[in-house]
Design a protein around this nucleic acid. Structure first.
Lengths: 146, 146
DNA sequence: TTGGATGCAAAAGTTTTGCACGGTT
DNA sequence: AACCGTGCAAAACTTTTGCATCCAA
């Protein structure tokens, strides 16, 4: 199965029609390792000369989020929502404040902690968000990435 | 020292002039246990019949954030930034998805984990964000808070 | 064929800015 | 007195919506 066929199935399995625009958006989310805002996705599409309207990108991101294909991930310094593919295991990131680079962290350090919170509070835990911020070695050196 | 005098000093110590509007905003942030968006603060001010312009609230929140008096905290379902007082110890929250209630959690469960990340990655860690989402007992019961 | 998806343009909503005036230090 | 802070109105920017057309199933 080609990567394109895979994404076509992915869309249909989630009750969404497979279209040129949606496949292009999935390609971008697949290939970028960092969470992207709606505007980010639109800019990437333009770089690839994909003809698409910004409102379509907004609607597509909404639809994919509602269907569970993508999820809201970390968020940047500004107040935009960033999305990433909803892979099986969730991810946490180490974000460089200087150059905005995202490094995925291995595993989830608070799995057990959350179990404890659940049993103490009787909340039905649905998810969590954890990101760590700092300066990468290059940016600490006042380096290129900045 | 009255609470008001305390906040007056707090502002001056951070290089900000003490004004009626800023004291009112600090009062609200002091008294609410949950992080608030700029708009939230504005609405609270109106409830208290404090005459203030929305753009002043935006500018004040920006200034207080820049001076370290408040910090960006958890964020809600929409994509607004939420602020809270920058107390000595930072806080994490358990947020109910149904009724939007914020429960502060005791301590920070990832202190040690972050030290490990720092030494492995050579990043200069500046901060982190952790929130847990779920449904409180009432909302699980389909209850009032919803 | 049919209902969902898209493009376009306009509207709605949010945040920022310029400028004159007012208030704190 | 000097300068920061505020209100007001306009501008800029982001996101949503209505509607006609298009396209996947």
């Amino acid at each position: 199965m080609t990567p394109n066929e895979y994404n076509e199935n992915l869309l249909r399995q989630h009750g969404l029609k497979s279209t040129r625009q949606r496949l292009a958006i999935l390609d971008i989310l697949d290939n970028k390792q960092a969470p992207l805002s709606t505007e980010d996705v639109y800019i990437e599409l333009q770089k690839l000369d994909v003809a698409i309207n910004l409102s379509t990108v907004y609607r597509t991101m909404d639809a994919m989020r509602d269907k569970g294909l993508i999820r809201e991930a970390a968020l940047a310094g500004d107040n935009r929502v960033l999305y990433e593919m909803a892979r099986m295991e969730h991810r946490h990131y180490l974000v460089c404040i200087g150059c905005k680079k995202f490094i995925p962290l291995d595993g989830c350090p608070i799995k057990e902690y959350i179990n404890g919170v659940a049993s103490q509070t009787h909340y039905a835990i649905a998810g969590h968000r954890l990101d760590i911020y700092g300066y990468c070695p290059q940016c600490q050196a006042g380096g290129a990435g900045r």
